[in-house]
């Protein structure tokens, strides 16, 4: 949670991370309720292709719920979400189309414990994308090498450390060749030593131009990688800005308080 938990040796070259004018995700006037509880309020958010957005905020502010709405793990009740030109409705076809294009990493990794690392990575390409097994395995090994754990391919998730598991989870998502990646507090369940290895992987991904939305409290990561930081509180977007401005001159009192609390030690 602290700024010191993460520091990368090499600063990211911003020229490598171009943002196109093409819209990847368009959320307009979206509302969601859990029963009577109004959890997301009038969310308007446009994400361009290649953008890296960090969402932060106190727990219960709706930040996880927001990104879970983007691949329909949660259903929104009002407003419109368009992902990659496809609108999210209750139509299962649309949902499946969107889920193929949107990768997601979870706080608790959610690897499949009954399958090996390699099988975790090849399952969806084989069964959803209908890619031949051999090709899927080659792709999987490529991405496992990329997250620096190719030698663990035949182990089971339970034999890996938390950091390694999270990197496998990232590789598993990448094997589907997604156009957008969602990260739901990917480092919150990790030891400080392991946070860095996961963040390094995410930085690499950002450098390659992946469209990313990360819910995280890693402010060092936000400062270095994000081109927009969004602060949420009580179900609404309170403030969004470029990281530099966001950290230096937070405008709302709520943001100031939050930043002073998470950066204050």
């Amino acid at each position: 949670m602290t700024e010191t938990a993460f520091s990368s040796e090499s600063a990211v070259d911003p020229s490598l991370m171009k943002v196109s004018s093409e819209v990847a995700i368009q959320i307009s006037n979206m509302n969601k309720w859990y029963g009577e509880f109004h959890v997301l309020r009038n969310i308007d958010l446009t994400v361009h292709r290649g953008e890296r957005i960090v969402i932060c905020g106190p727990s219960g502010s709706g930040k996880s719920t927001l990104i879970r709405c983007i691949n329909r793990l949660e259903e929104h009740q009002q407003g419109k979400i368009v992902v990659d030109g496809t609108e999210l409705t209750s139509d299962l076809k649309n949902i499946d189309t969107i889920r193929k294009e949107v990768g997601m990493c979870f706080q608790h990794f959610n690897l499949f414990p009954h399958l090996t690392i390699l099988e975790n990575c090849t399952l969806a390409p084989i069964w959803v994308r209908k890619i031949p097994r051999k090709e899927a395995e080659e792709t999987a090994m490529h991405f496992l090498a990329k997250v620096k754990i190719p030698d663990q391919a035949h182990k089971y998730p339970g034999q890996l450390s938390g950091g390694q598991q999270q990197r496998v989870a990232i590789a598993r998502s990448l094997c589907m060749k997604p156009r957008i990646m969602l990260f739901d507090e990917p480092t919150s369940a990790l030891d400080p030593e392991m946070i860095k290895e996961v963040l390094d992987t995410m930085i690499e991904l950002a450098q390659e131009g992946m469209t990313m939305i990360c819910v995280t409290h890693e402010m060092g990561f936000a400062r270095q990688v994000a081109n927009r930081v969004i602060f949420m509180d009580q179900g609404q977007i309170v403030e969004q800005n470029e990281p530099e401005e966001f950290f230096k001159n937070p405008r709302s009192d709520r943001t100031k308080l939050f930043l002073s609390q998470i950066l204050g030690h």
């Binding site: 691949n71 793990l73 997601m104 959610n110 598993r172």
Partner: peptide, 13 residues
């Protein structure tokens, strides 16, 4: 754990 259902869903299965 519900995460298993969610991970399967999020992969498009």
């Amino acid at each position: 754990p519900s995460g298993q259902y969610e991970a399967a869903d999020s992969l498009g299965l």
